[in-house]
Amino acid sequence: MFEIRDLSKSFRLHHQGGIEIPVMNNVGFSVSRGECVALTGPSGVGKSTVLRLLYGNYLLQAGQITIGDLDLGKANSRDILAMRHHQLGYVSQFLRVLPRISTLQVVTEPMRNAGMPNAPAERRAKDLLEQLRIPPALWGISPLTFSGGEQQRVNIARGMGPQYPALLLDEPTASLDQQNRATVLELIREAKTNGAAIIGIFHDAAAREAVCDREIDVGAFRPSVSACTVNEHQ
């Protein structure tokens, strides 16, 4: 499902003296359907950057990313939007939603985008919110008013709703209590059983071991010091 080859990424900061910060070099791995792979490495090594590149949120500069049939380097904006609607879910580290939209709507929206009719989409949204222990009294309220853990659970419900064949999870179990963590791990297992290819970041080693089949150390793709110097000379 995911096929990543020779992926490199650097950030050029034009207003900080034009420095170029290389983040990773020659990242390559692939993930099949029904498989869950964990990205590991210390904070700042570029794990979230990999997920953002896969989601098209960061610009692909060098290398190749194929998700399903879509070659991200050749895809235009519309292809990427269609992929996000139908193929690829992303549970970001922090919930980012528009103000004044109810929790139920926030969770239903991606399923509607994926083409599910309103009634079943709402049913599944309610079901997920219930499983994740968000009290029905809060469903009509914007999640922006919620606690961190509640927001994270809404975020997971949102990402799990459409049952995408490919999923990106950025710290899905962070800031959750034991019970909710177990529910989230169960949802991830369920997605795997349904054939989803999953790439996740889990700081919690126990969670990682519970759901992941393999680990990929992103630190291994760190650009060497000499690579930085070369970039500076260019």
Binding site: F11, R12, L13, H14, H15, R52, G56, N57, Y58, L59, S77, I80, L81
Partner: peptide, 21 residues
């Protein structure tokens, strides 16, 4: 030009970087 979230989160042109920052 690009996807709105990509241009806002990973701006490439100096002027876009200035706007976003």
């Amino acid at each position: 030009t690009g996807l709105a979230d990509q241009v806002l989160d990973d701006p490439q042109h100096p002027y876009t970087q200035l706007l976003v920052s």
